[in-house]
Amino acid sequence: MNILDNDRYLADIRKALDTVYDPELDQSISELDFVKGISINQGRVCVTLGLPTYWCSPNFAFIMMEDIDQALSSLPWVKQVRVILDDHESSTRLNAGIAEHKTFPEIFSESPGDLEKLRRTFAEKAFYARQKYIVDLLTRDGLNVADWIPGNWKELKRHLTTSREGQQLWDRYYLLAQKLGIASGDHDPAITGTSGKAVTGEMWERHFHQLRLITLNMESNAHICRGLLRVRYQPEGRSPLVSLPLVDQS
């Protein structure tokens, strides 16, 4: 292993971390600057997370930590993954639990509820938010969305893939539709509820109102979270600390 390998490994890790999302904000943990440090040593990777507050919901922290563990474990050269959450009320329990691959109820037996249901709820909200951004872009491009809906996936792709921004929105929306099991073949309706039911003209006004509210809620929360993270971990503009072994021992 040499320094160039490390660069490549680091790029792999960054790419994997880009796919891990804060479920509540629907932004990647890299974008949100939650990654405080990455270390690599002979195929062993350790990622340290810092969240906006000491009190951030442990269930969301768990989801992100579990997703990091999975995303990194799938890299072929990775032998072992450690995920460390710093400065959090449940750090000790979460760090140990994730290392032992425990489920959320195994770590927090006192916490009622169903984590998978929570994941689904937030994936549904994210689907609507992504739909809202698509509708906004189509409207800016001069399409009368109220007349066009529900459209189909083929038309949607044609509308969106002409620009980079559109392509990104399409990728994100399509990915989540697949994850939620919403039919997304060429002729399936493109603007739907999370059950896959087409949104029709008479439903549109109320539906759009709800999209707006969901997006506003998400963006407002993100604004608070980003600001709290910034003041919590001053100085500003820090980037993830990368600690690599100085001497290659392999």
């Binding site: 009190w55 442990p58 269930n59 009320e89 916490s111 009622p112 509820g113 984590l115 929570l118 608070i224």
Partner: peptide, 11 residues
């Protein structure tokens, strides 16, 4: 609202 110590699944 935000700021306190949620541990319930969806406090």
């Amino acid at each position: 609202g935000p700021t306190i110590k949620p541990l319930n699944m969806d406090a």
